[in-house]
Design a protein around this nucleic acid. Structure first.
Length: 601
DNA sequence: TATTTTACTTAGAATTACCGTC
DNA sequence: GACGGTAATTCTAAGTAAAATA
């Protein structure tokens, strides 16, 4: 394994961690923000852990190029007749035309939001004429952009090379910053282009126009003595400030949801690496106290206080099922989704007996990104009885845990362990599951391919626990068929090689000379090779089938302590490149020297 | 104390890059 | 060198949680 270490800070952190007794409950400094009191009290010291940098210099965001009007021959038709639109109205029309073939343009909410926002961009005359989306014909616009995409793809090699070089130049110019003397890659150095908002699930704002970001919208954050980034010619920044308690380089407020968007560092940066590491350290501290926390919430199932009982049942679900906290959401502003604390009565069904178990709870709700969570789980008697109690005399839309908020739950967790919040349970359970599964599934004598299959199985167990789903790839059926054909061919080759081997064996026994022996040896090796190839293909087929609708990437990137995987690779001689690609290796660079082969989460 | 705002983390889809095959 | 399939990367929405504010 080759790890490039341009990480002088790593060595110090490794030593620190390596020697730290793990059970010791350390004081993870909670995130704090500047208050006036702090400033007066001299909190602006690096040692407090609040200050994130002392030098930050960058070029500011790169802006989406201005709108290019359509050529005259590309027409928009209204009621069957060509209609030349004003520049602003035309631009918004292209947003719709570009995605004409997408499913959500068929949705009423999308259409209504789009049309109403589009009208705002129209001239008075246009607004008078264009009164119904049904009479709008965007097909020429759609074809224009589709053709353009095809043409781009068919560009000669050297033209493509030029485009690539231009992108690289842009990356070099805008894609890096200097943070405390180090050149660090920025994660997103471009502002988001204007277009139509596409929420997930039944989002009430889908189809609204997301406006072009202007320098006048952008707040720049950089150090006082740094070269202040130059706004594009003829423009000004909204504000230039120096706030070294935050990690963002620039920000603006997006118009659809009024949320703040940030330009931030790439995950491979020192700053984000350290935070990632801290996250897993917090989860490891939970490992040390989780048994105690579990006994406590089990005891609390019988508490006299209803709020305590609700909290204890919710915590049990967060721990056992890896549910998200479920914070409160603005009704009508966002899609109607739920997490643990925001579960409603209609999301849960109780079965005194089901699937051969007593006390089965059936969950069916939409979680983050409107991904469905469906699960039937047997629970302990008291949990079942409590759920029954919480649901009693309530309407389907009522909250299951009416006396509970994520804030109150987290306050309680903070008392149990410094830095403990609901999401730490997900991190902890994901990582401990990976570690356990790897131990259960890996056999030292297996081939590397078989070990990787085990790794992916362990990874999958976590993804299923965390409910990380994906739409089955469009090409799934076909690619599966192709693979099956390959396997069939390989099987035939193996059978043939067996026959040949047998023949060579007989031949060698009769003749007993050197030549026939060497033929025999050759046949033996060729059979072995074919069998290996077959095994690899079968493993691939199995893995692909099992992964059809499971997304492994999310847990790999966000929930699994990379040190578990690194240690596993070291112990079983699996090249790390088989587990982490280049980007992932860079993101997890902080972990490489920390994890020896016997690292334990 | 309750609500709102801010900052940061997590998420699946969409897009692009890459590689083997014909 | 076009094609097709997969892997990698990019994109930005949607969460969590804590601070700020009312």
């Amino acid at each position: 394994m080759r790890v490039v270490l341009a990480w002088p800070w790593l060595r110090a952190t490794c030593t620190l961690l390596g020697n730290a007794p793990r059970r010791l409950v350390s004081r993870g400094a909670p995130r704090r923000r500047r208050t006036q009191k702090d400033c007066a009290a001299g909190w602006d010291e690096k040692s407090t852990g609040r200050v994130q940098w002392s030098q930050l210099e960058h070029r500011g965001p790169h802006f989406t190029p201005p709108y290019e009007p359509l050529p005259d021959e590309v027409r928009f038709l209204y009621d069957g007749k060509p209609l030349k639109l004003s520049l602003a109205a035309e631009e918004v029309a292209t947003f719709y035309g570009k995605i004409l073939d997408h499913e959500y343009t068929t949705k009423e909410v999308f259409q209504n939001n789009f049309f109403s926002d589009w009208q705002k961009e129209m001239t008075t005359e246009e607004r008078k004429v264009i009164t119904s989306l049904d009479k709008c014909d965007f097909t020429e616009i759609h074809r224009y952009f589709a053709d353009k995409a095809v043409a781009r793809k068919a560009l000669p090699r050297e033209e493509k090379q030029k485009l690539k070089e231009a992108a690289e130049k842009l990356q070099q110019e805008f894609g890096y910053c200097i943070l405390d003397g180090h050149r660090e890659k920025i994660g997103n150095f471009k502002t988001e282009p204007p277009g139509l908002f596409r929420g997930r699930g039944d989002h009430p704002k889908m189809g609204m126009v997301k406006k072009r970001v202007l320098p006048e919208d952008v707040v720049i954050n950089c150090s006082r003595d740094s070269k202040i980034p130059e706004p594009p010619t003829g423009h000004q920044w909204k504000e230039v400030r120096t706030d070294n308690t935050v990690t963002w380089l620039a920000s603006w407020t997006e118009n659809v949801q009024s949320s703040i968007k940030y330009i931030t560092l790439n995950p491979n940066s020192k700053l984000r690496g350290e935070k990632d590491w801290q996250k897993y350290e917090t989860a490891r501290r939970l490992k040390g106290v989780v048994a105690e926390i579990r006994s406590q919430y089990q005891a609390d199932w019988r508490s006299g206080g209803m709020r305590t009982r609700q909290r204890a049942v919710a915590l049990y679900l967060i721990d056992k099922l890896a549910l998200r906290a479920g914070s409160r959401k603005e009704e009508g502003e966002v899609a109607d989704t739920a997490g643990c604390c925001s579960l409603r009565v209609r999301h849960v069904r109780l079965h005194p007996e089901a699937d051969g178990h007593k006390y089965v709870v059936e969950f069916d709700f939409l979680g983050k990104d409107a991904i469905r969570y469906y699960n039937r789980v047997p629970v302990e008697g008291p949990v079942y009885e409590n759920l029954q109690l919480f649901m009693d005399h309530k309407e389907p839309e009522d909250k299951l845990f009416d006396g509970l908020t994520t804030a109150s739950l987290n306050r309680h967790l903070q008392d149990l362990m410094d830095g403990l919040t609901a999401k730490v349970f997900r991190t902890y359970n994901a990582s401990i599951t990976l570690q356990g599964q790897l131990r259960a599934l890996t056999r030292a004598e297996d081939s590397v391919a078989a070990k990787i299959l085990s790794y992916n199985r362990a990874n999958r167990a976590v993804a299923i626990l965390c409910n990380h789903q994906r739409a089955a790839p469009k090409t799934f059926e076909k690619s599966m068929q192709n693979l099956q054909t390959k396997i069939k061919v390989k099987k035939e080759q193996v059978a043939e090689a067996m026959v040949e081997l047998r023949r060579a064996k007989a031949d060698s026994e009769i003749k007993g000379d050197g030549k026939s022996r060497s033929v025999l040896e050759k046949k033996r090796r060729s059979l072995e090779k074919l069998q290996e190839q077959l095994a690899r293909l079968s493993a691939q087929a199995t893995a692909r089938e099992e992964n059809k609708q499971v997304a492994l990437g999310t847990s790999k990137l966000n929930y699994l302590d990379p040190r578990i995987s690194i240690a596993w690779c070291k112990r079983f001689g699996v090249p790390i490149e088989k587990i982490y690609n280049k980007t992932q290796r860079e993101k997890f660079a902080w972990a490489f020297n920390m994890a020896g082969e016997d690292f334990e989460f």
